[in-house]
Design a protein around this nucleic acid. Sequence first.
DNA 1: CAGCATCCTCTAGGATACTG
DNA 2: CAGTATCCTAGAGGATGCTG
Lengths: 121, 121
Amino acid sequence: MIAFKGRTYTCPIDVTFSFINGKWKVLILSHLYRYKKRSYSEIRDNLPRISEKMLSQQLKEMEADELIVKKTISSKPYRVEYALAKNGKAFSPIMEFASKWGIRYLKANGIDYLKDQELYK
Amino acid sequence: MIAFKGRTYTCPIDVTFSFINGKWKVLILSHLYRYKKRSYSEIRDNLPRISEKMLSQQLKEMEADELIVKKTISSKPYRVEYALAKNGKAFSPIMEFASKWGIRYLKANGIDYLKDQELYK
DNA sequence: CAGCATCCTCTAGGATACTG
DNA sequence: CAGTATCCTAGAGGATGCTG
């Protein structure tokens, strides 16, 4: 067991996944990984079933964990921009891998994601 | 959106993580990744805070998803053995990566997991 | 546009006891 | 040893309306 910041972890893998557990974090990270800079509403609209509460909550947690950075790019009208921070970029290999794995799995199950991508918007 | 087996997914990454979401799956997989073959109680004892219910439930789901295989190695006394199946082994790169990431993160925060490993049993 | 504040639901997950 | 079967609760997550 590893004791760290008031929590206990089974192993380093446990530590790593504690950053990206939660229903939406991986999806937000992968979205930012793909699009580099995105506004609040762009992220929301890409994740059709996320609630405002969840979105802002997860964004905040990930900002606190320094996985992402938020930048105010204009104050009137108020506009912001989210992007991966260094720690967040460090997860890119997982995104890459999970993406390829998913595409391969779908293909093995009769769905050609790459070919039919425009259908899945 | 991707419709598949009665669920909808945002993207292939969503598909991939649907297999390993849940509080314990990654930890069980990484444990099997490390030890190859493990009995029910060996897995349980390595995950001190897991409940019997969760353990058997997650094992079953992962067996159904063909991430792991269960083998009865003796019927009296009843003994079983869990191991990674092909699909489960396919996640090894994520385990490897997450393990290294966690170790590096811990080190950056003053915990030398490798050096002090015997403390974390 | 980019959120917060509330209130509410529901189910993931835990505790405990029991079985072949 | 390797699990089931119940019962129960905390808190993850959703719906909705409001604000600077």
